[in-house]
Nucleic acid binder design. Sequence first.
DNA 1: TTCTTTGTTCCGGA
DNA 2: GTCCGGAACAAAGA
Length: 288
Amino acid sequence: MPELPEVEVVKKSLENKIKNLIIKKVIITNNKLRYRINRKEFHKLQGNKIKSISRRSKYLFINLNTGLSLLIHLGMNGKFFIIDKKKQKYKTSFYYNIINHNLKHDHINFYLTKKVKLIYNDVRKFGFIKIIKTSEINTNKHIKLLGPEPLSNIFNKNYFNKAIINKKKSIKDLLIDQKFVSGIGNIYCNEILYLSRINPSRGIKNITKKETNKILFYTKKILKKSIEKGGSTIKDFNSADGKTGGFQQLFNVYAREGKGCKTKNCSEIIKKTYISNRSSFFCLKCQK
DNA sequence: TTCTTTGTTCCGGA
DNA sequence: GTCCGGAACAAAGA
């Protein structure tokens, strides 16, 4: 579920907590993630200093002073926890449904200087971590084919209108196609199309220029807004019950099947269908 | 036991 | 060559 905003929030959080620390020890309790972890390779990270954290699409990079980087994808449920010297625990992000920290799913533990511990936790193990050369980030097979960042200036009217010429798929399939634009997943795609008042199953060839402008506008707006909300919720994570957090209220359609449309004066019920095997939520009345 | 969830990848057909 | 849709895959909770 982590899409671009969540990954960006994780990035900022890691920056605050682990930048400039040195990896003292790596303990791997389960090496079977999406791709198998090579224990020896990870143990060699001992002594490396964390220079910076960066992000591209839904990928995170922890860049080390030795020319190596950890390439991380959080998959569906991947998350980082940080425990500091005062034994305080921080979660680096939150998702629309809060999942509490279950130690059972801690797979990789990085012991850092200043008594900080970084934990990679992943219930489904769909995420992965690879060690690559920092200089080869852009040519890495996961990265090189990614389309533009949705918040960048490259993702603009000109790009959009050129990219959709002769395309036949649905508008929804286009928005979650990482080669077209990278970082949008099923959840934000549903939200963007609701705000743009476009039915997700519409074919691209029927989308007007006015509508592509709307999609561009709301894509940038909602991604930015979510990044802001993420930052503000992390601050008060420490409270024992993690069930608060206003993220869920942000959703207008996602996972709201059978509930009322949030548009003013609209009494429609949100519908759920499947497009390319992915759940799609929309209002029949508001989204044409 | 079966169904659901996701991003990514792969494959066959057009 | 390229595009597109469908299915497979990873794991675990309900």
